[in-house]
Design a protein around this nucleic acid. Structure first.
Length: 411
DNA sequence: AATAGTTCCAACCGCCTTAGT
DNA sequence: AACTAAGGCGGTTGGAACTAT
């Protein structure tokens, strides 16, 4: 049933590209643009399949690719986005300008993952491997969230559909405005200025949310161990095809700072060339910076919730920079009733509100800044945790927001 | 210096989604 | 609605480069 590989044709070359081939491909694209990748090889005089040409271009020859060592900032960004998005490399790559998904994927697999493992952090769940917090008593708590989840999911789907409609409209009007401003489409003479089709980057967080609400509940029992943030029980896997990264699991260890005290979500990079952080877990190759996982950091974590997955005000709250978002979580909550149950958000605009929140923060709240505080690992008071939890999401939102071009077609 | 083991990354493979007919 | 082609994505791999013995 599957498509036959495009490179099955006899005579098509595979393997490493030669400088001559690179030159041919570059020259052709510079002159004509890539157009149809399928047709490109023949036109460019290459004995390659279109797919191979496309990959070579997107992963190597593209002029806007930044090569070389990843910066600390980039590493942090990757880790944090991985915690949020799982193995969705392309989504992560949209927040790292000039880096390709392939490069990020390779870097993760060859560097970052190993570092986390050495630090005793599960690179899949981003939580300490010795996190022995799991218990069964949270199961019932999370079961109690099922009805909430159904309500959330219902509203989410509705909002998502609305968002899609809106973005389409906005996209159209955007294009109209461009054309009314005599926007000149990329011409063959300037193929390198690729058509600017902004990816729906800002949906990443929404996708994360989507995933959170659309996974089977059989994982909730695991999340239930998260005693003080049962909203994480609402959260579920991010649906990376292979990654078992559990959103709630991330949230779980995010949350456990309040109870376990040593969980880790954000990673602090400490400039230090000593070659080894605690325990000598770093080899020399990685020694340009030491990593320290820290829990209960001032960088913040998830909001704190009570056993029912809601906070003391019977709502879920989080903030994004300038604004708070509060969603009621009472049992009668429905898409329609949502608006009447809360003053902060109207029924139909959950996603819009979330999106607005994301976009409203044009501040400088960078994750790296949030990650700069050494953890005392001792478990601050609950009120601090609550603030930290908010800050954590602020950080993620800020990261996604600030690193995403605000010119996303979606918004 | 030679060999074995390890690391790294460019490229491939196969599946999925989307667009066009 | 069904089908097909093309593009996109994530996982995997081959082999060059590097390191250890």
């Amino acid at each position: 049933m599957g498509r036959s590989p495009c490179c099955d044709k006899v005579g098509l070359k595979k393997g490493p590209w030669t400088p001559e081939e690179d030159q041919k491909l570059l020259a052709y694209i510079e002159e004509h643009g890539h157009g149809s990748w399928r047709a490109l090889p023949a036109k460019a005089g290459l004995q390659r399949c279109g797919k191979s040409c496309r990959l070579r271009w997107t992963n190597y020859l593209r002029p806007d690719i930044k090569r070389g060592k990843f910066t600390l900032q980039e590493e942090q960004t990757i880790i944090q986005l991985h915690a949020l998005l799982g193995n969705r490399w392309s989504a992560i790559a949209t927040h790292l300008p000039k880096r390709t998904d392939n490069e990020i994927k390779n870097y993760w697999n060859t560097h970052l993952k190993k570092r986390l493992v050495k630090m005793g952090i599960d690179p899949v769940t981003h939580k300490p491997k010795n996190d022995a917090l799991l218990s069964n008593d949270g199961q019932s708590k999370n079961a109690a969230n099922l009805s909430h989840m159904a309500q959330w999911e219902s509203a989410r789907l509705e909002a998502e559909a609305r968002l899609a409609r809106q973005s389409k409209l906005r996209s159209n009007s955007f294009q109209n405005s461009l054309s009314s401003q005599e926007f000149t489409a990329p011409s063959p003479s300037s193929p390198l200025s690729e058509p600017v089709v902004a990816p729906p980057r800002c949906l990443d967080v929404l996708k994360a949310w989507n995933s959170v609400w659309t996974k089977p509940m059989n994982e909730v029992s695991v999340a239930s161990a998260s005693a003080n943030i049962s909203v994480t029980g609402l959260a579920r896997d991010l649906e990376s095809p292979t990654s078992t990264l559990g959103y709630f699991e991330n949230a779980q260890h995010i949350s456990t700072s309040g109870i376990g005290g040593n969980s880790t979500v954000l990673y602090e990079f400490v400039g230090n060339s000593s070659g080894s952080s605690e325990g000598g877990i770093m080899n020399n190759e990685e020694s340009e910076e030491d990593w320290k996982g820290f829990g209960n950091s001032s960088t913040g974590h998830l909001p704190e919730y009570n056993k029912d997955g809601i906070n003391e005000n019977n709502s879920i709250s989080f903030t994004s920079g300038l604004q708070d978002l509060t969603l009621p979580m009472d049992n009668t909550w429905t898409t329609e009733s949502l608006g009447s149950n809360t003053e902060q958000i109207s029924p139909g605009n959950f996603v819009e509100t979330l999106t607005d929140l994301l976009l409203s923060n044009s501040g400088d709240g960078d994750l790296s800044e949030g990650g700069g505080t050494e953890s005392d690992n001792g478990g601050e008071g609950a009120s601090d945790n609550c603030e930290d939890n908010k800050n954590y999401w602020n950080s993620i939102f800020n990261l996604v927001n600030n690193s995403s071009p605000s010119d996303s077609a979606m918004f």
